[in-house]
């Protein structure tokens, strides 16, 4: 086929997607960039502020605290969900009716609207009427997620594990099913134990899906808003105010457009940077092996 014709055609095919995503991404992004350098008192009157909002956000304790909470939350969530997801995928049946039952039941939390997830956990964890809240208090542990920061953190993290571990399980299960049987037979002939099979056959083969799982879980946990907002409202105090919750408070609650816009861009850049770092690290490992 003629090369030049191919090139033109390819761009025409991509054009609708580019146009629609650009409409949705570039125009709003430019609006945010625009606000981030200016001050407004309404009536579409703007004053140039330069980098003032950026400096203000970067130096504010409030932003540091929210970022710190966000990093700890994402760290804990990744540290629990990834190993747990791999372990459960390894134990799942490979054929028979059990597969369908497992997949359907496990995918269920992924398809529940996020505010319903928050509301559901609220009802589930309330100390007076919730099963979880009652249960923990019955064990003699003082637990009330609306008043104690530690309980609130425990509840938010447990909710996220409940909500998203299945995604890791599904991805790893898909990766495991794609390993040809010959690999296991070769492992058996060499006398490899379960751990060695996992370490030298399954884990390297899972690398690609694990990269996707870690990236998706990182992005989504870093952007988390609805579930903790419905469950705790960011409280008690500011104990569970993560970056998105704080951003919405500044932008729509206080209507401080300039600082909110500057914070938006810093926030987006942090996600892009961390994704790039994860991706580079995991891909470099792949090239070496």
């Amino acid at each position: 086929m003629n090369h030049r014709v191919t090139h033109q055609k390819a761009w025409w095919m991509v054009l609708p997607v580019v146009a629609l995503v650009a409409f949705n991404a570039v125009i709003p992004l430019m609006t945010v960039v625009n606000y981030s350098f200016q001050e407004t008192f309404g009536d579409n009157v703007f004053f140039w502020e330069g980098t003032r909002w950026y400096l203000q956000i970067l130096q504010s304790d409030r932003f540091h605290a929210a970022l710190y909470r966000q990093l700890i939350f994402t760290g804990i969530v990744l540290a629990v969900e990834i190993p747990l997801g791999i372990a459960i995928a390894l134990c799942m049946p490979r054929k028979g009716i059990g597969v369908s039952v497992c997949l359907v039941l496990m995918a269920l939390p992924l398809l529940i609207p996020w505010n319903v997830v928050g509301a559901m956990w609220n009802i589930f964890a309330l100390p007076d009427i919730g099963l979880l809240g009652r249960g923990i208090n019955a064990l003699g542990i003082d637990y009330n997620f609306t008043r104690q920061p530690l309980s609130a953190w425990f509840t938010v993290i447990l909710m996220d594990i409940w909500h998203w571990t299945s995604l890791v399980v599904l991805l790893c299960y898909a990766g495991l099913c794609a390993i040809p049987n010959a690999y296991y037979q070769a492992g058996k002939i060499d006398g490899a134990g379960n751990w060695q099979i996992f370490r030298h056959i399954q884990l390297p083969k899972l690398k690609r899906v694990l990269t996707i799982a870690i990236l998706l879980r990182f992005m989504d946990s870093f952007m988390i808003y609805t579930e903790p907002f419905v469950l705790t409202g960011g409280g008690p105090g500011n104990a569970t105010t993560f970056l998105s919750i704080d951003l919405v408070k500044i932008a729509l609650g206080q209507f401080d457009l300039g600082p909110a816009a500057a914070m938006s861009l810093i926030y987006f850049i942090i996600i892009l940077l961390l994704c790039w770092v994860f991706h580079t690290l995991m891909m470099r490992g792949e090239e070496r092996s």
Binding site: T6, N24, M223, L247, V248, Y267
Partner: peptide, 28 residues
């Protein structure tokens, strides 16, 4: 097909998956 800027375009598309909805709420 290979075409001019295909890799960059693909990556740019994916970065939109990384944009926090909270950032876009007001401009939207």
């Amino acid at each position: 097909y290979r075409f001019l800027g295909d890799k960059h375009l693909f990556f740019w598309l994916l970065t939109n998956r990384m944009a926090p909805p909270a950032v876009f709420a007001l401009p939207f």
